[in-house]
């Protein structure tokens, strides 16, 4: 037996302070809603969200923007995912992975509704946008009862559907630091047979910054192969300051798979996921490498 939310308990605050106060007031029974594409279907499925009785809609808080500030690119938390695809700011080499992830996220209809902040705050281990943002060394700005503070995205995810946000805190903005134009990036998502729109079986984003064939910076982010999206730092580490070659990439891919800790679920077995993590990291690194030379 599932029920829709009761509209009496739906709030649309006009100021950040009102939003934070409402969150504090209702505590664990409240949830922030932006696009609603995760929260509403989950509610339909019953049990998991049965304790949530208050929704705080943040779409009136002016968080729908993409802008440049102090050399960084800033994305407002309630910016919809399709806005990333159309924003000229991301139409250059280092951000190709972000565009690829946005386009792979879901259908056009859902992407017009779903938000970048929502994709991160839902903290699904298979969240597509989390991976290029991790690879881009993004951080997030959080508003809360004690004012604003910044969290590295790398430490934001704490477990499945669990983030570093404390009671009363709201994600405001995602900040992407500046990257050199020659940075190569890519995002690859493995789906089940035939499907064009589906949650990932494994998803991977990588970034490579090269000087000739000398790797200055390597980033490897993996999804769907652990309790959270994560950076495979050991794997990336063996690429840094090395001369890149196919063999080294294969070694890094194997190492990244070692760093993963997938589980069996209804999409795939852990064994298959681990194997595919290596395949996807290898393919993604090769793609990023090729793109970095352009």
């Amino acid at each position: 037996m599932s029920l829709q939310y009761n509209l009496e308990n739906y709030y649309k605050p006009e100021t950040m302070k009102q939003a934070v106060d409402l969150l504090l007031k209702f505590g664990k029974t409240a949830k922030v809603i932006a696009g609603g594409t995760d929260i509403l279907p989950k509610r339909q499925c019953g049990a998991q969200f049965d304790t949530i009785t208050h929704l705080i809609d943040i779409s009136n808080l002016g968080l729908n923007y993409i802008k440049e500030s102090k050399g960084n690119l800033c994305i407002g938390a309630s910016t919809n995912i399709n806005s990333l695809v159309t924003a000229s700011a991301f139409h250059s080499n280092p951000y190709i992975g972000l565009i690829e992830a946005a386009e792979a996220h879901s259908t056009n209809t859902i992407r017009n509704q779903a938000t970048v902040g929502g994709n991160l705050c839902n903290a699904s281990p298979c969240a597509d946008l989390a991976l290029p943002l991790l690879a881009l060394s993004a951080c997030v700005v959080v508003a809360g009862p004690k004012g604003n503070h910044t969290i590295q995205l790398d430490t934001f995810f704490k477990g499945p559907n669990c983030t570093a946000l404390l009671p009363g805190e709201i994600l405001l903005e995602i900040i992407i630091p500046n990257h050199q134009e020659t940075t190569g990036a890519s995002f690859i998502k493995l789906r089940h047979h035939q499907t064009e729109v589906d949650m990932a079986v494994v998803n991977v984003a990588t970034q490579l910054l090269l000087d000739g064939n000398n790797c200055l910076r390597a980033m490897i982010a993996l999804g769907s192969v652990g309790p959270t999206s994560f950076l495979a730092k050991k794997a990336a580490g063996i690429l840094s300051r090395q001369t890149l070659n196919k063999k080294l990439i294969e070694q890094a891919a194997m190492l990244a798979a070692d760093e993963s800790a997938p589980i069996d679920d209804n999409r795939a077995t852990a064994g298959y996921r681990k194997e595919m993590a290596a395949v996807l990291v290898k393919n993604s690194l090769e793609k990023s490498w090729e793109r970095s030379r352009k």
């Binding site: 089940h192 035939q194 499907t195 589906d198």
Partner: peptide, 26 residues
């Protein structure tokens, strides 16, 4: 793509997210 998955009699994919019928784009 289809088929109910069971564990100890529990159906693990009782929704269209996890039970994949083809979408029009597929």
């Amino acid at each position: 793509t289809e088929g109910l998955q069971l564990k100890d009699g529990h159906i693990l994919n009782p929704n269209f997210t996890d039970y994949r019928i083809l979408r029009s784009c597929d």
